[in-house]
Amino acid sequence: MWRRAAAGDTAAFERIVITHQGRVRQQLRRLCRGDDALADDLAQDTFVQAWQALPGFAGQSQLGTWLYRIAWRSYLMHQRKLGRRPDELLAGDDTPDLPDASTPHGPALRLDLAQALARLPEAQRVAIIHCEVLALSHDEAAAVLGWPLGTLKSHVARGKARLRDWLADWQDEVHR
C-alpha cells in the first residue's frame, strides 16, 4: 500500500493514516504527558511529513516503525522550540523520586500509573513508552529513538525497576 501512496495515491495514503493514527497519536500523547491537543498537532505534522517523505521510503523498516521515528523527531523539534536539548534526554537520572507516602499527595500519586510514568526521568520514560506501552522490541525502539541498544536497555531496566517499586508501594498501601 505504501508504494501506491509513494506514487501519489492519496486514497492509499488515507488508508495508511487510518491504520496507524491510533498508535502514532498514542505515542505522542504519552510523550507529551497527556497534552492531547499538542500530541494530535504533532501527529498531524508527522503524517504530512510522512506523505512528503514517502517517495524516499525504501521499505527497509516497517512502515509503523518509520512513522514512529518521524513522530519522535517531531516531538524532539517541539522540545527544541521550548529550549530543551535532545542530549538532555540521555543525561541520566535527574528526576526526584515520588514524594514519600507520608506526605499528603503521596498515595494519590502512587494510585495513578500515568503520574508514575510522568515522574520517571525523561530517558527512562521515553524508553518505557516505546518498549512497554507501544510494545516495540528493543531493536525497533533503539532504531526509532536513534539510541545505542545498550543505552536503551539500561533505561528500560532502570525505569521498570522504579515503576515496580512505586507500584508495589501503592499495592502495599491499598492492602494495608
Binding site: R25, Q26, V133
Partner: peptide, 25 residues
Amino acid sequence: RLRSAWPAQALADGGFTQAVMARVN
C-alpha cells in the same frame, strides 16, 4: 498493565484522518 492502560486501538479517529488528508490534498 502499561499496555492495557493506553490501548492504541481505543483512540477514536474523531476527524483526525480528515484533518491530515485536508492538508495533504
